[in-house]
Write a protein that binds this DNA or RNA. Structure first.
Lengths: 186, 186
DNA sequence: TCAATTAGATTACGGGGATAATCTAAACTT
DNA sequence: AAGTTTAGATTATCCCCGTAATCTAATTGA
């Protein structure tokens, strides 16, 4: 209890945003502030010293998740020495892996937050960030002879469906089928 | 208040299931029993005379939504006199229409409930129904030279993304792009 | 017709949720 | 070293949720 150094406080705040971005992806924006703070080793009362409201955190956490996504893509591109095709193929394989299917919390926010975005009508910051994120992703995925939008739809659809049918053999089949389709036409 | 004829009671029950199946698709399974019953012109107290629990209703409403989907597909097939290709193309165009994007409540449950299914771990009835529904849909969509799974992923992904980016021009672009892609390769 | 049944309304209860005021002790500041 | 500031803990308020007991009036059926 009591006070904490400014550095510690800032670090705590950062951890709250990061944890929120993971929990929101995993469980949706319905998780309570109390549970979120507990996951950070803090109590829920302290929340409002750092954030104006839960909505404000949602905006911030969404932005954070998309920044991570961009970084990951860029890192992948660098590792392939700027060879876009190779980087794309690697990303597709990772995207449609069982690890990604099972790791929603650390996974693609476009997939994890899609339904929440569709439902949270409002003109929130989060929605703007999301739309831009989709646009960027599609552009990044485009090839000379295929539209990035369609590729993203197929990837996204496969991941979402694989997650929704997890536990059935169909889930794995969806991943391998989509992977094959996206490899053949790349 | 008071009692109502058996016929009326049965009709009321039916309406609760139908309304629930629409509201769940539109807003997720989080809507309260009270709001649901109010939408049916009833009070929330009466609910437990007809259903064992909210979970039981979720199962029933999910099943209902999928029965509707099957019926719609079969009706489309009949209208095309059994010509599967033509029926498929019509369904794809409807599926990727702005009307379907904007009509989540009456739309495809595979798309509307995907995230909820992924999150509601349990081995509920609803999950079994959902998985079977995906399987059926994919089979129905398959052509001689393309897998139904991939086509479903693309359709589903496009619909979900169009909904999530609604309000931006990107939303329409996603629909038309996916429609074109699914027409070219059919 | 009249007693037994029951659909739906009222009301109550226990649990959580978001938010906010207040408290407290540690970190800053001078 | 003393006073001021403030991060986080405690606690409180108010609202909504699922569930269930109780109530009540209409239907059923003998």
């Amino acid at each position: 209890m009591g006070r904490v150094s400014q550095a510690q406080a800032q670090e705590n705040r950062r951890r709250v945003v990061e944890t929120a971005s993971r929990l929101f992806r995993e469980q949706g924006a319905h998780i309570s502030v109390a549970d979120l703070m507990k996951a950070c080793g803090l109590t829920h009362g302290g929340f409002y010293k750092q954030f104006a409201s839960k909505d404000a955190l949602i905006d911030e956490a969404t932005t954070h998740a998309f920044e991570e996504l961009t970084q990951l893509r860029d890192a992948g591109l660098e590792q392939h020495a700027g060879q876009r095709d190779a980087a794309q193929q690697t990303l597709i394989d990772t995207y449609l892996s069982t690890e990604h299917r099972d790791g929603t919390a650390d996974g693609c926010p476009v997939a994890a937050l899609a339904t929440d975005m569709a439902r949270g009508l409002g003109d929130r910051d989060a929605h703007r960030v999301y739309t831009e994120g989709v646009s960027d992703f599609a552009e990044w995925l485009s090839t000379e002879d295929q539209d990035g939008i369609t590729r993203l739809c197929t990837m996204l659809g496969a991941l979402v469906l694989a997650r929704a049918t997890k536990g059935s053999p169909l889930s794995e089949e969806i991943l391998t089928t989509a992977r094959a389709a996206l490899t053949a036409t790349s």
